[in-house]
Design a protein around this nucleic acid. Structure first.
Lengths: 233, 233
DNA sequence: CGAAGCGTTGACGCGGATCAAAGGCAGTGG
DNA sequence: CCACTGCCTTTGATCCGCGTCAACGCTTCG
């Protein structure tokens, strides 16, 4: 997978603090327009916890995830954090109607994203390009996700939150039935409106009940998807 | 205001159970296309708690609120309810990327909405009409709202939730500094992921602290907006 | 080896849910 | 006009799920 390649490639091992928004494929920027489908797309890579853009910054770009997982989130003044969404391969984030980003975005694990200038996209949309409908559909999928997320945040108990999170976010690269959770417990907690301790306890509980099986910290196997689905209501 | 007119007009006093989706202005439907701006818009009126569409139904229409307040919400199998959003004058709801509504919609108080057939809108968007950008902007505003909502649901305490709700949803028709809350305590509770008892207690607490003043059940005055904003973080 | 991060587990306390009862307020009928 | 009814809201008492605090285990890195 691209992400492990990324993590292993020596070229990425830059000194700490000096690797913000590196161009992944600088050579490709020499051929603007060469790839029509990408329209001024530009690849950047980020290490875990690196900020991609900050809450309140000028919203100049829209991003697509090529590898890894990105989280978008908001903060309260006292530091409490709410993760709004996780974006993985193919996911698009950075939509804004105003001039400023209303959420910040950061790498939940090492990842690669493509940037698109916002103005181009909007004029594209206005021109009636097919892409316009696709963008619209993406935005709407975001809305549907947000609605499901609100249901979890507002009305599900801790176990139910974790169960629905697993069903919704562990769809991905399986190996031996095990699925990789790219994000940390802290990220999961801040996504579900819980604490790391509670998330950890719920994982343990689900494993004790044989609904899931854990291998290490980031590999999960859903043993009883039906039971998990029942839990979610 | 249109809504009180609606509530008072004798024509609306139909026998219970027989008033689903009445056309508000049947005569106008005789002139399709007469009003270009409305593009097959059709006005319907609903009483409080009447369903506009159900979760899982075919998503045939998009709606705009002309008067009153509409809530969109999801349910868990055991009846727990999460209100996703309140839509008031000018608000548009019913966006879907798939074929089915992922949330239900109902009147939070007596209200009037205009319906638009979905296909027309989408072809409109594809044609590059100016409306397409407006719709896009509306969808994005929805996303921003959902993000703010998630922050409340996941990371704010009960008082903070109510304070931010007031700041966000009581902007509207003021009379003598008092603002009308169109929705019931139950709706507020299901929006904020609380119970009615807690919502009620928090209102009382905010009044005791002189942050707000209540007149009856549906009129609020923000005495200390600054304090409320501080509460929200 | 020690140190730093991250995750797990246990003990305890608090915020908000739950249960219960009583207080407005509008609509209805006498 | 008032009594009555039903619905919504408020308030109080109690309970419990999850947060908080603390200790410990595991993994990675120097």
């Amino acid at each position: 997978m691209a992400i492990t390649v990324l993590a292993n490639a020596g070229i990425w091992k830059l000194p700490a603090g000096r690797h913000a928004g590196i161009e992944a494929y600088p050579e490709s920027t020499g051929h603007p327009g060469a790839d029509g489908a990408r329209r001024n797309g530009r690849r950047l890579s980020f290490f875990r916890d690196q900020e991609i853009y900050g809450e309140g910054e000028d919203a100049t770009c829209i991003y697509r995830v090529e590898a890894g997982v990105v989280r978008t989130c908001k903060f309260l003044r006292d530091g409490r954090r709410q993760i709004d969404a996780f974006h993985s391969f193919g996911g698009v984030f950075g939509f804004q109607s105003g001039m400023k980003y209303r959420t910040g975005a950061a790498a939940a694990c090492d990842c690669i994203v493509t940037t698109y200038r916002r103005l181009n996209l909007e004029s594209l949309a206005a021109s009636g390009d097919r892409l316009s409908l696709q963008l619209f559909a993406l935005a709407m999928d975001d809305i549907a996700q947000a609605q499901e997320h609100a249901l979890s945040l507002g009305r599900r108990s801790a176990v139910e939150k974790v169960a629905s999170f697993l069903l919704g976010h562990a769809a991905g690269a399986a190996c031996g039935g095990f699925v990789k959770l790219a994000m940390t417990r802290q990220d999961i907690a801040d996504y579900l409106g819980l604490t790391i301790e509670t998330v950890s306890r719920m994982f343990s509980q689900l494993e004790r009940r044989s609904f899931i099986e854990l291998k290490g910290v980031h590999l999960v196997r859903m043993c009883d998807t039906t039971a998990l689905r029942v839990l979610c209501g």
